[in-house]
């Protein structure tokens, strides 16, 4: 038995292990998590830490976005606005009411979830594109509110957010977002692996057949939006404290599009694909900051290329790779989820 084969076998037996099943993650995913968790010990460069934090943050946002587009097949074009709701809410609660940051972030997520519930109801009768446009208008409305409620948000002047970890370096932020990302992934993966996930996929692939097979599309769509927006709000709360200044720009459609591109590059319906894509794309774009103006053009081109040549994204490439290795080793193929 070759070495590689024994590793793959091991991964299979490990995947069946109770612990991994319970968390809904593969041994490979846990290994990546551990390596990430140890990385601050080896990385001194604060800029690199900053990139890691940004990647995790956008990756986590992509996971929550894919939870909707990758399963019930609706593009939530207002997604960034829900993130912004979480960001503003937690920032204001801490600066105005002196609430503890943890509680504030929770409150922000809950408010975002409530608004997500609302958008779920609003888009209920609408299909694909129309639901996406409705979500988009909703997001634009939220952004205008943030821009115009100057007494509360200071509008475009920017809202200063209290420092979360005074005196601490980037590491504290890193561990916080690593924890948030892990929780986001595990919770959403658990839901997707349950019957609820099956209902989501049914609705996303053929809503008429889903209804006629007993799936309550209303209930599952609203639930999906609520959960997805909850996590957008949570990550938004982190964003506020990490960046330190909030402007309504955080809620702009441009931000949603960036997250969408990560999802598509990563592979829709994989949950983890967008996270992986974030680690590849976000650092590149940070280096290309001077090219800010054409950033969206590059994003658009990237997406077109992916859609044409790799519609399944990185997740599909990974699955093909695993199958290829298995075939080469003469093993029965078994698809692995992140």
């Amino acid at each position: 038995m070759t070495n590689l084969q024994s590793i793959l076998n091991k991964q299979n037996t490990l995947s069946d292990n109770k612990f991994f099943k319970l968390l809904g993650v593969s041994p490979f995913g846990v290994a990546v998590f551990i390596i990430l968790a140890l990385s601050p010990l080896f990385i001194d460069d604060q800029y690199v830490m900053h990139l890691l934090i940004s990647s995790l943050m956008f990756g986590a946002l992509a996971i929550g976005f894919d939870f909707t587009v990758g399963f019930i097949n609706i593009v939530n074009f207002g997604y960034a606005a829900f993130m912004g709701v979480g960001a503003y809410t937690s920032a204001l609660l801490v600066s105005r009411l002196d609430l503890s940051p943890v509680l504030a972030m929770l409150a922000g997520s809950i408010l975002a979830a409530i608004l997500g519930f609302l958008i779920g109801l609003l888009t209920l009768r609408l299909r694909g594109m129309f639901a996406a446009i409705m979500a988009w208008f909703f997001g634009i409305t939220l952004m205008s509110l943030a821009a115009n409620m100057v007494d509360l948000t200071r509008g475009h002047l920017g809202l200063n957010v209290p420092i979360l970890f005074p005196g601490a370096g980037r590491d504290a932020y890193f561990y916080l977002i690593l924890g948030i990302t892990a929780v986001t992934y595990i919770v959403l993966r658990k839901i997707i692996n349950s019957h609820i996930g099956l209902a989501f996929r049914a609705i996303g692939q053929n809503i008429e057949a889903a209804r006629s097979s007993g799936v309550d599309s209303t209930k599952y769509r609203v639930f999906n939006f609520t959960v997805s927006c909850f996590f957008a709000g949570l990550i938004g709360g982190f964003y506020a404290f990490f960046v330190g200044v909030l402007t309504p720009a955080v809620m702009h459609t441009r931000v949603t599009v960036e997250i969408l591109v990560l999802c598509y590059i990563g592979g829709r319906g994989s949950l983890w694909g967008g996270l992986l894509a974030a680690f590849l794309v976000i650092p590149i774009f940070e280096y290309l900051r001077p090219l800010m103006e054409i950033r969206l053009i590059i994003y658009g081109l990237l997406m077109i290329l992916v859609m044409i040549y790799y519609p399944g994204g990185l997740a599909a490439v990974y699955a093909q790779l695993v199958d290829l290795i298995r075939d080469m080793l003469g093993m029965k193929s078994k698809s692995v989820t992140g």
Binding site: R201, A202, Q205, N206, A209, S212, G269
Partner: peptide
């Protein structure tokens, strides 16, 4: 069942 067959194609 439907006149134009309905399925969940990616399942």
């Amino acid at each position: 069942t439907y006149q134009i067959v309905n399925s969940f194609p990616r399942m």
